[in-house]
Amino acid sequence: MAMLKVEDINVYYGSIHAVRGVSFEVNEGEIVTLIGANGAGKSTSLNTVSGLLPAKSGKIEFLGRDLHGIAPHRIVGLGLTQVPEGRRVFSQMTVEENLDMGAYTRAAGEVKDSMADVYDRFPRLKERRRQLAGTLSGGEQQMLAMGRALMSHPKLLMLDEPSMGLAPILVDQIFDIIKELHASGVTVLLVEQNARMALSIADRAYVLETGKVALSGTGAELMASDKVREAYLGG
């Protein structure tokens, strides 16, 4: 059964029709990626799933539950957490306070173990836990943003452009972490412009073009597709 089911959603920014009848699914245990150029509607789709943007029509179901009209902060409580584009760590708060915020929906007793898990996974964050998040490097901020999201103990983790603005070596590192997270049982929905990296780790993928799903298939299928190679993988 699909963990997340997005059916024919339409999303507008004012009069701009940004997402036009997009449908996709994420099954439990998968890594699914949405790829496409800037402005294709990837982030908009993700923010609609998170409840930050309203869908004009269509349906979004998570674990069989209709998300229509559910406030964003409640959606997090259901186990659906997003790591937003551009990391958006709280730069005036310390690393540890950022992680605390990630655990906002959880009971006080559960936070400590999750914090230890996150520090195990990201030793760098432990070293810098008293430092203001704004003083971290881009890669460290991405780790913090991911660690912060993990603090909510998500069933489905949505990552929006985690590789954006990072040096190639850090991109590899971030993708390794995504694979590790997946191996530890987290289902992943990944939005990426770096199509090659995204397809290489994805079970399935959807290609978005001007607000519509243009293609879909397994990661390997799309990697082999002429159309995808030409448009997104540089020939």
């Binding site: 930050l52 406030a71 964003p72 902060h73 709280f90």
Partner: peptide, 24 residues
């Protein structure tokens, strides 16, 4: 306090705060 920190988070970035599960 949890609420006090949430206030700082909201003051810095409402959207990100919502994604943490904070009721803005």
């Amino acid at each position: 306090t949890k609420m006090g920190k949430a206030m700082r988070a909201v003051s810095e970035d409402k959207g990100a705060a919502q994604l943490m599960g904070i009721n803005v």
